Amino acid sequence: MKVFKEYWWLFLIFLATTLVFILGYKGVMPELEWTDKPLDILGGLFAKLLIVGALLDQFIALFFPEEPSSVEQRKAAVIKLAHIKEKQEVVNKQLFDAKLNFDKEPRPLYDLNTLNSNLSSYITSKEVVANEIERIDSGRSKRVRMIAFGLGLILAITGITTLTDFIIMPNDSNMLLNHKILSYYDIVFTAAILSGGTSGIHQLSKVVKDSWMKS
């Protein structure tokens, strides 16, 4: 229930998008006609999504900025993590030298037990700080993705599409059932891609490229 209360506007947009297609349904189910130039469309599709995704990133960054408290917390955590990594590197070097000269020196310069204890302590501290940074980022990421998905639905219903780019759609406004269903899923799918911003589009591009190489 908390999700519904917090993101009621997103569900309202989603419901409105669904009603557009339910109320506009007419016709039967003819066969879909696929385009004969999928590679050309694929290149244009990724270019279009990258441009829209980049603009969406900038829009969210400008109108939905991160809270100053979160920014300060992340800065402090990042600085702390960098210091821990530096200390860990020093201990790793000391541990390496101690093991290398253990049999050569009558009195080792470093105590192995102390170094191992320090190293374990730094590793644990590093994990704690890394988890803290992830927690801060996840809270911001969840909010941004919800906002981006809502904006993506609006953009998709105005004509920014992905799946239907590969299908020859009817010219008239009275699309038939399978065209309507596909258009509806296209809107949701495109909004989901745009909600990831440019990073989500790069991930989709990588998946398509890997699948293409394997085939």
Rank of each mutant, 00 (worst) to 15 (best):
I41Q: 03
L115Q: 07
L119M: 10
L151E: 01
D103C: 04
K209Y: 09
W212M: 15
L109F: 10
L194N: 03
Q58I: 04
K48G: 02
A47Y: 04
F11C: 07
N118W: 05
L62M: 08
L194K: 00
F4I: 15
G43V: 06
F102T: 04
V28P: 05
L176C: 02
K26A: 06
F102H: 14
V207P: 02
F102P: 00
I187V: 15
P106F: 08
S195E: 01
K104L: 14
E86W: 06
F11M: 12
R143I: 09
L95T: 06
K206G: 00
L182C: 02
G139P: 04
Q73K: 12
Q73M: 11
K26H: 11
L32W: 01
T162R: 00
G152H: 02
P38V: 01
M29V: 13
F46S: 04
I84C: 06
Q203D: 10
V144G: 00
V91M: 08
I136R: 06
D186E: 06
Y185H: 10
E86L: 12
V129T: 15
S125T: 09
P170T: 07
M146L: 07
F189Y: 12
D210N: 09
I84V: 13
L176K: 11
I193H: 00
V91A: 10
K142W: 03
L100N: 08
A191W: 00
A47R: 02
F14C: 06
S173Q: 13
L42G: 01
